[in-house]
Amino acid sequence: MHEVRTVAADGIEGVIRALPDPGALLDAAGQLFGHWMQLRLPVDRLVFPATVDRIRFHGPPPAPHALLSVTARVREVRDVTVRGDLELCDAAGRVWARIDGWTYRRFGADERVWPMKFTPEVCGIGEPQPAGWCLARRRWTDPASQELVMRRYLGAAERAAYERLAPRARAPWLLGRIAAKDALRQLLWDGGAGPVFPVEVPVGNDPSGRPVVGGALAAGVRLSIAHKDRLAVAIVHPGRRVGIDVEPVTADPGALIRVALTPDELRLAEELAARDATGLPAALTALWCAKEAAAKAHGTGLGGRPRDWRVTDDPGSGPGSLRVASPDRRGGPSYPVRTAPLPEDHVVAWTAHPAAPSPVPSHLMETSHDHHR
């Protein structure tokens, strides 16, 4: 690409330089056309060439390094494609080639996916939260866009695990990995690390199915993941066990009360609903999520006995604060848990970090460049 001269509502003009490699000249023309989409499309600006109807040449190939002017006219913009015609002219203004019906495929790319495409080592799709956990939303609408995101985030072993999943299970699983990797990378960045690619913080599972952090950059960091519908959440800590859960607000409060809550917890939910103006279904769901998060941090899960995990109010710790006692007969710990509403009528609960968290281990403060040197 030599020069971009004009960008209009229906096209773009510029100058490209011929390179000696076969196909490079037409590729450069297509790059100019694609640049119009990057500049003018409001969303889904991530594009790749898909098809061409016809190419007509009107002379021999230009000499290497010769300059040609290109005019690309946009004929049609659809939800998943952009179609246009291109004309390439030599320095004397003679038409050298015409390309009809060059069609580009659009992929889902909003304000978070778009920069991640270019600099995945310093930004991500996940939305780190001040409380130390990360939210990931499904920001694509089709399998092809999902595939592009997957290839930015997963290493070879993780891709193999992804491919073994049933097609419908892949999107939520991938969202969980995105939330986890972006939570891990945020911890590293906050500790002074340099650029960290998502594949540098692999996430696997131990024999019991719990997620574990692999690789050297974040070795020893504790991790918890949850996903539901089009959302995923993850929380990390350099030393302490953590737990997190996300659920849609219950559509059947009666069933949740019968299965999971004690009479005291029902009264607590009613108090929370009145105090926070969230509605009883949301308050009930928050208590359920709190039990799930605490049981994950405990390392056992609910074990089919959700009523044995007792939730009490913890108003002195701020809005949405609860405390969950484990059923361990040996005097097991209780867990401070925070809850909050999420988009799309969901609730999240996570084990709260202490006011003075453990210092980040020194190995997490190395830059990724130093680690690989």
Rank of each mutant, 00 (worst) to 15 (best):
161 A>E: 11
116 M>S: 14
122 V>G: 12
153 Y>M: 06
161 A>F: 04
135 L>S: 12
165 L>G: 13
148 L>V: 00
126 G>I: 02
170 R>E: 04
155 G>R: 05
146 Q>A: 15
146 Q>W: 02
155 G>P: 02
152 R>H: 05
113 V>C: 06
163 E>V: 10
110 D>W: 02
175 L>E: 08
169 A>C: 05
108 G>P: 13
113 V>H: 05
142 D>Q: 10
121 E>M: 09
153 Y>N: 05
111 E>I: 01
129 Q>G: 03
152 R>S: 12
175 L>R: 12
171 A>N: 10
148 L>N: 12
142 D>H: 01
151 R>P: 13
162 Y>H: 15
108 G>K: 01
158 E>N: 10
175 L>N: 12
175 L>C: 07
141 T>E: 15
177 R>A: 01
134 C>S: 14
177 R>G: 04
143 P>R: 02
113 V>I: 04
156 A>H: 11
137 R>L: 07
107 F>Q: 15
121 E>F: 04
161 A>C: 10
172 P>G: 08
146 Q>F: 03
128 P>H: 08
132 G>W: 10
132 G>S: 11
115 P>S: 03
146 Q>T: 05
106 R>M: 08
167 P>I: 02
106 R>G: 09
161 A>L: 08
161 A>S: 12
177 R>Y: 06
143 P>A: 11
176 G>W: 14
136 A>Y: 05
131 A>T: 13
141 T>R: 03
166 A>M: 10
145 S>W: 00
123 C>D: 03
107 F>P: 13
